[in-house]
Amino acid sequence: MTEASPGSEPQAASNGPLLEITNVSKRFGGLLALSDVSFSVQQGTIHGLIGPNGAGKTTLFNVVAGTFAPTTGKVAYRGADITGTPSHRMASLGIGRTFQIMKPFGSMTVHENVRIATYGRTDSTEEASTEADAVIAMVGLERWRDRSAGELPTAGRKRLELARALGLAPNLLLLDEVLAGLVPAERKPLIDLLKEIRSTGVTMLLVEHVMQAVMALSDEIVVLHHGQMLASGSPRDVIDDPRVIEAYLGEEHRHAEG
């Protein structure tokens, strides 16, 4: 936040989209998890990625985050091809991510957890500590600063996931179900926090199961179903789309019967 992060180099294509996904497919053996998905994310927006269980949301997320490479297709960030870039290089490009299954460094305190991220931005441990404190304050974990990260309750761990990603001072934040597993009372403050983060100019790609949250946050939404793009557009357009309603209702019917 004080220093220019490595991610804020002069942009290659200043007017193009920040993230561009072109014809991405991913095959796991006989299963086609993603089929020809294309969309782009504009700088400064929140892009929601929704779909019923098994739609390929997490697969697409992992392709973008560099966890694994797509079978075919291309992911471009600021106009540069980043397909298959190992995940540890993503951070230096200015891309931060959270994990759906939270992964705190259990032997460390909350502050030490966040400092692992801020270390990458400065040569001085002291500065990294200060930066970490700033992020901890932003996500509201001050009270837990010196507590073991393994002890945090679920809502706290979600915030820690977010804090660590924010510690990278990212340009693009990939959020994997940050609201899942929270009770509604815990969601509201987190949604407000995400809005606050957007107001600092961070672009977000949001994989989410909680519909209401996606609607409240997203500027654009992509709906995946059976690995294919079912619909995309503004939240209003998407929610009125009969195919989307059918995909979700079909899912709920099955839940009700099963």
Partner: peptide, 25 residues
């Protein structure tokens, strides 16, 4: 106590999370 050492422990605790924060495991 150094950054290098903290990275080593981070990789031990969770390799994926460490990678996502820019650490080469």
């Amino acid at each position: 106590r150094s950054r290098t050492g903290q990275y080593i422990v981070a990789v031990r605790d969770d390799e994926d999370a460490a990678s996502a924060l820019g650490i080469n495991p």
